[in-house]
Amino acid sequence: MAAGGVSPGGPLGAYVPGTSLLHRCPPGPKLLGLLVALTLAIRWPEYVAVPAVALFALARVPPRMALAQLRPLWLFLAVAFGFQVLAAGLGTAIEVVGGILLAVALASLVTLTTRVSAMLDALVVAARPLRRLGIDPDRVALLFALAIRSIPLITEIVRNVREAQCARGAGNNPIALAIPTMIRTLRAADALGEALIARGIDD
């Protein structure tokens, strides 16, 4: 696989490098912990809020990075808050919006403290028992790697098609953009498939 160009919003995604206990914890136990925390947060949000903030402090995630994960939700939460204040009162509005924020914050903490590669490796390991169902974990890993490698390739196709159609004055016609994109994407898939066959992936 060629290196580089994997992800757009920074090479690490949302991951914030660090050496805290949460950073060093393997993804498996962290995911189990999250499951427990989310279950508790749904049942007793008022008791989970303070420990959740303490976990962020423990992970030493800068508040700016933590808030950046919640930013796309702000408009959504503002509408939900306003609606609930009018429909059911301030108490319910705080409960509902607080509950959503808590769940999202807890789950984002796993992403903020776990490398993408570590998470994918953990998933491939977790897929091992599926071998009995005919699912090969090595193929799962290969699939992830191929998909990540294809993102810059397909992004380039989408951009090229848009530029070509803009030059023809069809830059905002979704159909004029989508058909050539699909054809070129399928051609890219065929080329990738042939490359895999040439390397003996088909047996």
């Binding site: 699939l143 191929l146 998909a147 990540i148 397909i154 994407t185 898939a189 498939g193 992936i201």
Partner: peptide, 17 residues
């Protein structure tokens, strides 16, 4: 098959792109 694998990977990438 390798062809299936390639198409699945490339379409996952298309959704991302």
């Amino acid at each position: 098959t390798a062809t299936d694998l390639a198409r699945i990977a490339v379409f996952a990438a298309l959704i991302a792109a």
